[in-house]
Amino acid sequence: MAESAPAVRELIRSVEQDMRNALTSLWGQSTNLPSMTLLGKGEAAVAQLWRSIRSAPFTFLATLCTVSLTFSLVAVFFLLTSNLSSSIVVSQQSLRIRVFLKDGASESEMKQLQAVLEQQSFTESARFISADAALDEFEVMLGSHSAFADGLSRDNPLPQSIELTLREGTDIRQAAAQIETLDDVDAFSQFVFYPQQSAQRLEELLALFQQGVLFATFGLLAVAALLVGSASKLAIYAHRDEVEILKLMGASVRRIVTPYMLEGVVQGLLGAMVGCGVAYLIYMLCADSVAQSSMLSLLFPSFHYLSVFTVVALLLVAAAVSALASLFSVRGLVREQ
């Protein structure tokens, strides 16, 4: 062995020379290399994303479906509340209060009450409305559904009332409260009503409903975050060998996490798009029947789709929530390895 070594080394040296020339020429080219352009980075990210989806298409689809379902609920909730909230437009100008009389109140009692009400400082005029007049009014309000009122007319259950018209500039709430304290009102009427009162109640109810929707939306966003986060966790777990190699090669945590985050963002964004699409479908299917049904058109006087602002906001929120969700569920795993 000792004798042959010099000859072998000579041979190796000549091969080594060629190799070294090749290597140095290769390395020579790699000084002052351009770094990746933004476009190149984007391209690489898309390529990696596609590779990742292709390596586990069913996981991706399953997550996409559940996330879509979640965002569909959010979008439909928004569709409902945005239309409901714009439907309650009660004229604040009308300054009328109705004092409904007790059943069987006599003519003299009515007259007495009317006189008292006319004396009030805020009263412009006080008009008696008989049960028959109330029924006529009701029929006009119902319009095409007046067959219903026909049934009522045989045995009219509507109470008699006195309608007060208030002077310009009166605070209707204060006036109503004052009326309620009058002894005669207490004695002869069953209740005092003004439209703003019910509108206010309805608005309160609506506000409550909107708060509920807001909470539900937060809940649903949390669900979406959970779904996207666990999908990212699953994805990184499926690629744990690759993650380890990248770490051994000196890839930063950010470099490793970014593609998984991107995948999460795509899932969230696509899910939100599907959600908006589902809401649009529901809008298309329901718009006509809402317009035709008098009950529904009372609730939704003009039924329109989500505003562009709402759609964009929903997409942005979806992207942000899923980015954060996948970042936080994946970062720890990568650091740990």
């Binding site: 080219q29 790699s30 290399l33 351009p34 770094s35 990746m36 391209e43 690489a44 090669m249």
Partner: peptide
């Protein structure tokens, strides 16, 4: 891979890699 982690563009990586 090492070139990729240095942020070197795909086309350049391809050329050096083939070499």
């Amino acid at each position: 891979l090492a070139l990729e982690l240095q942020g070197i563009p795909m086309a350049v990586r391809r050329r050096l890699g083939m070499e």
